[in-house]
Design a binder for these strands. Sequence first.
DNA 1: TCAAAAGTGTTTATGGTACACCCATGA
DNA 2: TCATGGGTGTACCATAAACACTTTTGA
Lengths: 233, 233
Amino acid sequence: MGTQQIDYYSSQDKMYVAADCIVFGFDEDELKLLIFKRRVEPDKGNWSLIGSFVKIDEDVDDATRRVLKEITGLDNVYFEQSYTYGNANRDKGYRCISIAKYALIRIEEYDKNLVEKHGAYWYKINELPKLTLDHDKMVIDALNKLRRKARYQPIGFELLPEKFTIPQLQSLYEAIYQRKFDSRNFRKKVLSLKVLEKLDEKDKSNSKRGAFLYKFNNKNYERLLNSGYNFEI
Amino acid sequence: MGTQQIDYYSSQDKMYVAADCIVFGFDEDELKLLIFKRRVEPDKGNWSLIGSFVKIDEDVDDATRRVLKEITGLDNVYFEQSYTYGNANRDKGYRCISIAKYALIRIEEYDKNLVEKHGAYWYKINELPKLTLDHDKMVIDALNKLRRKARYQPIGFELLPEKFTIPQLQSLYEAIYQRKFDSRNFRKKVLSLKVLEKLDEKDKSNSKRGAFLYKFNNKNYERLLNSGYNFEI
DNA sequence: TCAAAAGTGTTTATGGTACACCCATGA
DNA sequence: TCATGGGTGTACCATAAACACTTTTGA
């Protein structure tokens, strides 16, 4: 805050602040979004992102972690801040500012029991139903942020299992950018970054021959980031 | 907001929301930041960004415009959202969430009378004093956002007068990125974008020979953006 | 006439892009 | 044996980077 300290909030009206989460996952070569069918009014039956009001003594990031934990059962979910939506009339009936965060989760780690409990479903990113309020825009914005970020940080790894194959990594990037890449050029590029460690195991779930598994080398990644680079696939 | 509608705000405590502005300007080959010496408690005498609480029925962007208008006397100042700062203890005594915006203004258009009125000063970006609270971090984050954005949008034009020379444009980019560029390569690059229109006038304020003035061609810029590009100087 | 900034071209290096075939294996 | 996905190398082109001298003109 700056120089002004006028009490604008002396009226009865309350300013609500919500941490809303755009939860991306990757599964079966598809980028997916976790959304919820509202089971209470207002807007019962409509699809929505998940979120929660931020408590008065709670960091916004902690509110985000709380929401993600409740929904996915996971601690330490990767998330980044997207935009903050502050139009006075964006919500119905009350003033609510939404601080949007996008999260990336490995679908196979996701606790499936939580789905039914919360009325949650994974939708393919290009088959989404209409969402409530301005949530459609929030998804578009988050996806654009993800795409932009994935260009200069190998963020995509957050969406893959710990061990993954290069064809898997490629199909993830194809899902994020919604276009095909040449497999020779893709492989050349990601290997040139030297952040992948080849393992002795193969994953044979997709082919008879099997594809070598790799894991992500965090130490080399740090080095890469500090030297400043650009993914540019 | 998502599925939860619990009333976390039933206590006396209020959640404040502020629109805080990181105002960049360009002058005499230097990138500058507009900051304020607080003349009231708390934190009297400390340097601070400018901001205001968001009114209950006011869009956050409108609050930003209100602040910028009051400080600079200008309508239609260019601004972008930076981060939202939501730590519970980031402000003193009360809970305040800060939605940070960075603004770019042409210093010569700035109404100098407003400086004294608000206790405002332009500081060179690399000679800033310590700012109050987390405002130092807000400036660093905003500067990084500006740098990143300037790579894929010719955002720098917002900081220059309507008519400007190529050496001026270069020194702006040198101020933003804090490094030198080769003048031949810089000129080649910006002219290749075809968003500059050469005028018949010269600016002789910096040399006897004078440098041709250019203006920014908005139509070509739109075309450029839609075709997707990357400034990459 | 000279100091100081404006303006101009070419060469080299790097990295992106396009492109087609062989390999391994389980069914 | 064959269908399927995994894996490899090369040639070309576009663009970034490095680099030095001439021009203009007011003082």
